[in-house]
């Protein structure tokens, strides 16, 4: 921030642009570690952006100079909160990435369940079996059929 108070410096505006841009690109990666780096860059970019939202000037401490030339203290207070929050989330995401690596050997975010099912079905070239009522007379969902054979079997198991 400049003492003269002519508005945000171009360097900081460019820093925001670069940080947010890199952050977004990294966020699109599969590996959680890169996603984490992306979130750190994005978070810092946004924090600097908030700082730019206030009036620039000298240190906002009463007695250190004329009030009109002080910078706006409110965004600085907010940015402190935001930094702490970003820090906490970073720590948590690190733990998740480590746990993921510990359990599965890598920290990649896999496809979701539905996608994998569709890919599997497409590989075997079969149509999706959406009707889960079951086919045939035994699986008729409308029918309250006690399935005698299976029950007897279970009772026999219980008796043994």
């Amino acid at each position: 921030m400049t003492e003269s108070g002519a508005g945000p410096t171009l360097v900081l505006v460019l820093a925001v642009a670069v940080l947010v841009g890199c952050g977004v690109i990294l966020l699109l990666e599969r590996s959680l570690t890169r996603v984490l780096l992306g979130i750190i860059m994005l978070g810092n970019g946004v924090n600097v952006l908030i700082l730019l939202g206030g009036r620039p000037g000298g240190a906002p401490i009463v007695g250190s100079g004329p009030v009109e030339r002080m910078s706006d203290p409110l965004p600085q207070a907010m940015v402190l909160t935001a930094i702490v929050i970003t820090f906490g989330f970073t720590a948590f995401l690190l733990a998740v990435a480590y746990r993921s690596w510990y359990l599965s050997g890598d920290d990649e975010v896999p496809d979701d369940l539905e996608d994998r099912q569709i890919i599997r079905r497409a590989g075997r070239n079969e149509a999706s079996a959406a009707d889960l009522g079951g086919e045939g007379p035994n699986g008729d969902p409308e029918q309250v059929d006690p399935e005698p054979a299976r029950r007897r079997l279970r009772r026999g198991d219980d008796g043994q």
């Binding site: 952006l49 948590f92 975010v109």
Partner: peptide, 20 residues
């Protein structure tokens, strides 16, 4: 976690812009 943090970042950006 990643989706939620992204939405928080967007929220934080808009808070900053509203203040500006």
């Amino acid at each position: 976690v990643v989706v939620s943090i992204l939405s928080s970042m967007i929220f934080l950006t808009s808070v900053g812009l509203v203040y500006a």
